[in-house]
Amino acid sequence: MSEVLERVRKIVIDHLDADPDKVTEKASFIDDLEADSLDIVELVMAFEEEFDIEIPDDSAEHILTVGDAVAYIDGKLKS
């Protein structure tokens, strides 16, 4: 498991009180992890803080799953 995925999973589990087994790359924040739109705003802020990056709103709109977040953050860290 990539380091980014591990760190993203930890934030998601913590912020959403989610069952760790359910926090897979494919898991959708809203459909699988019971998040609402405000939870996602808070999650994105936590990702920004953890990885010291900025995630603009129009990018955040496309982060719907754990895997989406990992891919976006990976891309940011490499650029």
């Binding site: 405000l38 705003v41 808070e42 802020m45 920004e48 803080e49």
Partner: peptide, 10 residues
């Protein structure tokens, strides 16, 4: 301002 929680107001 970007660090303010979306749950602050509610």
């Amino acid at each position: 301002p970007k660090r303010i929680s979306p749950f602050f107001i509610p």
